[in-house]
Design a protein around this nucleic acid. Structure first.
Lengths: 214, 214
DNA sequence: ACATACATACCAAATAGTTTGTATGTTTTA
DNA sequence: TAAAACATACAAACTATTTGGTATGTATGT
């Protein structure tokens, strides 16, 4: 995909740099308020490069959502919470991990696709669908652990693993909104604490059966 | 504020019509993608009227957030869940009421100030603060019931009424994002069901003390 | 006589997208 | 194997339209 040359060794990565710029600038300003010129400046490329790689601003947003899905799924796949033997510990570990990465500037830990969804859901179906695929694709990675935890804890519920996985994402997305409103991530942390408390309460209703639970 | 005339009886309400238009159009398209012309067309007024009542587009958004806070607080103040004698029933009734108003088109039940917050938090502090005041002003109306429920249920918690009230708003805001992503409000309903289940579990840990609880 | 509530026409700047040009790498062919 | 032909990855300048905002005029009420 990239073709560096002798004169310009950094050449050939304009596409990736535009995707990274889109991730950062759109998270800060939103999709509509981010101009193509903004993105080109942030990426250090010209408009010619932009429209060489992407047929439109909308197409860049779709690609950025896909890029986001790829990079975040790799990031979470390598996170330490997967090492727990107990599925409930993995689930609680995921929530704890989400909490631990909330620090510093808001644009660094908030969600690109959640931000874009709010803006484009009625105007750009292609972007919306790419964002939805990212959100629910990530949520789906939690479902096996939830299902297994339900089995080991003997939970007979009127809710599904998919709905609980989606709920975790709702809490996270909502926590980001509250953090943006206050400018303080404490409110987000506290909301995620409530989510963790909910999960603990849900699975503490019934005693664990079969394998022991430390 | 309004000054209707003989020739144009509807005259004088341009300001209110612009605020209503802002509520509807910005919920559908977002703040940045909504032009002043869009708003004037939706409100049926000219640009002269717009800039007569509001010095800038930003000022309209601030006023729209304030208008949203006023109308929604009146709406919830008149809702039936306040009639319950038990504070926990009022809290659960609130959540059930929020669920019941989720139907039909997304722009009709989603939150203006939550949508705007995501876009403007870094670019328009005045709008962000107006949105934050609306969100947390509404959350604050839940705190007395939460605090009273904690007393009557003898809850000694490591969380505060304010944090739980904020959490309810996080779930609602996040549920709206998921609904926008899927185009289906079922996912929002299910997430609010999880919130209700959490509240029930939280307050069922300890037996109610003092006044009876039906 | 003065203020309010608009309507109309206008403007400079910003916008997404296009056109054209060029440096470099790859493939084909004589 | 060398050169021609082609494709890729940009750069720079340009354009039609839209944007938020302004300047000015006018009808109506106080």
């Amino acid at each position: 995909m990239s073709r560096p040359t002798k004169q310009h060794p950094e050449r050939g990565d304009a596409r990736t740099r535009l995707l990274d710029a889109a991730r950062d600038v759109i998270r800060a300003k939103g999709f509509a308020a981010t101009s193509v010129d903004d993105l080109c400046k942030a990426a250090g490329v010209t408009k010619g490069a932009f429209f060489h790689h992407f047929p439109s601003k909308e197409a860049l947003a779709v690609a950025a959502a896909g890029h986001w899905a790829e990079t975040t799924s790799a990031f979470f796949a390598g996170a330490p919470y997967h090492r727990h033997q107990d599925p409930l510990d993995r689930l609680l570990g995921y929530v704890e991990f989400r909490k631990s990465i909330i620090e510093g500037d808001l644009v660094e830990f908030t969600c690109l696709v959640g931000t874009m969804t709010q803006e484009v859901y009625a105007s750009y179906p292609a972007i919306r669908d790419a964002c939805a695929a990212s959100i629910f694709g990530h949520a789906a990675t939690l479902e096996p652990d939830i299902a297994e935890a339900m089995r080991t804890h003997g939970i007979k519920a009127d809710w599904t693993p998919a709905s609980l996985a989606a709920h975790t994402q709702a809490v996270l997305q909502g926590a980001f909104i509250l953090a943006k409103a206050t400018g303080d991530c404490v409110v987000a942390i506290e909301s995620i604490d409530h989510l963790k408390r909910y999960l603990a309460l849900l699975f503490s209703q019934t005693r664990p059966q079969g394998s022991p639970h430390g």
